[in-house]
């Protein structure tokens, strides 16, 4: 299978700070990939690079074989690359269904306003938010706002959906629900990249794990391999701990 998304030696610097350094990765169609790394490892920056919010300062990003490195963000979004935000960003004064309809209309290829709203209601059904459809987005609870992000992402009719810390701030039952939802999305044929800093959450759903540390990719492999990788354990638990388990 060919790669859906391919990063070749991607770097991103902010002034003197190198937030992402020489990252090469490829994600295949239909995979669920977890992107891990401690806080500040550069995960969100990497997502921003891919989605065109902060274009790469070095290397290139290919989506379905096309170079999207310097494409404006809205075009990337329309080409089938959707994301959710770590800090959820709904349009606060719009209703839930309007939020999702916007995604369907502008990126999801809905033909008109009416079709967009129909699509939106369907996605809300799928994400379990149908009851809240006409609520103002800013009044939703955090768990529901995260679901809204899912629904928005899906309404964009993406080929690749990037979920940035969708579980932060959720309790364990809500995390369970979210994971179930992710699996259902994957079953419908969408490739998924889950960005997380808690390893446990993604182990169960991911086919493959990537680990970022200080902006560099330090591991790429099956979950079982990665969790035993010395560098990963070091990054997460410190050098001492790694030496201890080695012995």
């Amino acid at each position: 299978m060919t790669a859906l998304l391919e990063l070749k030696n991607v770097s991103r610097r902010f002034g003197g700070l190198v937030a992402v350094k020489d990252v090469s990765v490829s994600i295949k169609q239909g995979e669920i990939v977890g992107l891990l790394g401690p806080n500040g490892a550069g995960k969100t920056t990497l997502v921003n690079v891919v989605t065109g919010v902060h274009p790469a300062t070095g290397g290139s990003v290919l989506f379905e074989g096309r170079d999207i490195t310097h494409m404006p963000a809205f075009r990337i979004a329309r080409s089938g690359l959707a994301r959710t935000f770590q800090i959820v960003q709904p349009f606060p004064k719009m209703t839930v269904v309007e939020n999702v309809a916007a995604a369907a209309l502008f990126a999801g290829g809905a033909g008109g306003m009416q079709e967009a709203f129909e699509l939106a209601r369907r996605q809300l059904e799928f994400a379990g938010l149908a009851d809240a459809a006409d609520q103002i987005a800013s009044t939703l609870t955090l768990a529901k706002r995260k679901r809204l992000e899912f629904a928005k992402g899906l309404a964009m009719n993406p080929k690749l959906l990037m979920l940035d810390e969708v579980n932060a701030g959720l309790n364990s039952a809500e995390v369970e629900d979210a994971m179930r939802l992710i699996r259902r999305i994957a079953d419908s044929g969408v490739t998924i990249l889950i960005i997380e800093h808690i390893m446990k959450v993604v182990l169960s759903v991911s086919d493959r794990l990537l680990v970022l540390h200080h902006g560099e990719l330090i591991a790429d492999g099956l979950p079982a391999e990665v969790t035993n990788d010395r560098r990963v354990i070091e990054a997460y638990l410190g050098k001492r701990y790694a030496e201890k388990t080695e012995r």
């Binding site: 919010v53 809205f74 979004a77 349009f91 719009m94």
Partner: peptide
């Protein structure tokens, strides 16, 4: 609709595929 999105959150509008 697009303008309303922009007025509320321009970055999110951009990411949603609106040619802001």
């Amino acid at each position: 609709f697009g303008l309303r999105c922009i007025s509320q959150n321009e970055d999110a509008a951009d990411i949603l595929g609106i040619n802001t």
